Computed example of a mutant assay.
Amino acid sequence: MKFQVQDTGIGIAPEKHAAVLDAFTQADASTTRRFGGTGLGLAISKQLIELMGGQLKLESEPGVGTSFCFTIPVEPGDETEDLKDQLLADLKGLRVLVVDDNATNRRILDEILRAWQLQPTLTDGGEAALAAIKKADQSNASFQLAILDCMMPEMDGYELASQIRRLHDDNDLRLIILSSATRPDDETRCEQMKIARFMTKPVVQSEMLEMVLQVMCPESMPPESSEEDEAVDC
C-alpha cells in the first residue's frame, strides 16, 4: 500500500534530503529560521515505516514544495469481518429477550446487545419471560431471539424453552442457551426443544456476535469452525 503526502511549502535543498530524516535535524538550522519544531517528526515517521517493512522517500524542490511517500506490505483484509458488519447492520432493531436470574449477567448482555443496536428486554426468570413473550405477541412486536440462562431457580432454561415452544416454533423465535457448565445430555435436549445454540459462560463478545449471526443469518454466514471451545450447534 502506497501513501503520499505533498505540500507547496519552501522545499528542501537536495544536499539536505538525507539529513532531514535524522533526529533533531532540520533543513534550516540557523538562528534566524522562520519555522520552529524539534526535528523529530520525520525521524520518528521513518523508524515506524521501517518497522512495518517500508521505506520513506522524499522528493523536493526549493521554493516549490516537498513530497513524502512510502509503501508498506499489507495483507488483504478479512472479508468475513466485513460480512459480519453488514449482517449486523441488517439486524438493527432485532427484538431480543434476555432471561437470567443474575442481575450482573443481565446488565452485561444488555450492554452488548445495545452496542449492536439490537433491542433487548430483560427478565429475571421463567415466569417473567413467558409474561413478556405474551405481552409482546399481543402488541404485534414478538421477540425474534431469546437468550436463556440454563441454571435458574424454579424454572431452568430447558423447562423455559419447552414452555416457549408451546407458544412459538423455531422459525418465529430462535433460542440460545447459556450455561456455566455442560452436561452429557445438553445436545439431545437442545435438539428436542429446537434450541439453536448452546454456549458456555463467561460470554465473550466476539463469540456471542458469531453465534447470534449464525442463528439469525444461517444462510449468509460461513460454516463454524470445529474447535472445542466454540458454541455447540444444536
Results as ranks from 00 to 15, higher is better:
residue 5 V to T: 00
residue 5 V to M: 03
residue 6 Q to R: 14
residue 8 T to W: 11
residue 11 G to I: 00
residue 13 A to C: 07
residue 15 E to P: 09
residue 15 E to M: 13
residue 17 H to M: 02
residue 18 A to W: 04
residue 19 A to I: 03
residue 21 L to F: 09
residue 22 D to Y: 08
residue 22 D to E: 15
residue 23 A to I: 13
residue 28 D to L: 05
residue 30 S to C: 10
residue 30 S to Q: 11
residue 31 T to Q: 13
residue 31 T to N: 04
residue 31 T to L: 12
residue 32 T to F: 06
residue 35 F to K: 11
residue 36 G to T: 06
residue 36 G to A: 09
residue 38 T to E: 14
residue 39 G to K: 14
residue 42 L to I: 04
residue 43 A to G: 11
residue 45 S to K: 04
residue 48 L to F: 14
residue 50 E to K: 10
residue 55 Q to W: 07
residue 56 L to E: 02
residue 58 L to F: 05
residue 58 L to H: 01
residue 61 E to Y: 08
residue 65 G to D: 07
residue 66 T to Y: 06
residue 67 S to Q: 05
residue 69 C to W: 15
residue 71 T to N: 15
residue 71 T to V: 14
residue 71 T to Y: 14
residue 72 I to Y: 10
residue 72 I to V: 15
residue 76 P to A: 06
residue 80 T to Q: 06
residue 80 T to H: 13
residue 81 E to T: 08
residue 82 D to K: 12
residue 84 K to L: 02
residue 87 L to V: 07
residue 88 L to H: 03
residue 89 A to F: 08
residue 92 K to P: 01
residue 94 L to W: 00
residue 95 R to W: 12
residue 96 V to Q: 00
residue 96 V to E: 02
residue 97 L to N: 04
residue 98 V to Q: 08
residue 100 D to N: 10
residue 102 N to Q: 12
residue 104 T to R: 00
residue 105 N to G: 11
residue 109 L to P: 10
residue 112 I to N: 09
residue 118 L to D: 00
residue 120 P to Y: 01
residue 121 T to H: 10
residue 122 L to W: 11
residue 122 L to K: 05
residue 124 D to W: 05
residue 124 D to A: 15
residue 125 G to E: 07
residue 126 G to Y: 01
residue 128 A to D: 10
residue 129 A to M: 06
residue 133 I to L: 15
residue 134 K to G: 03
residue 138 Q to R: 04
residue 139 S to Y: 09
residue 140 N to V: 09
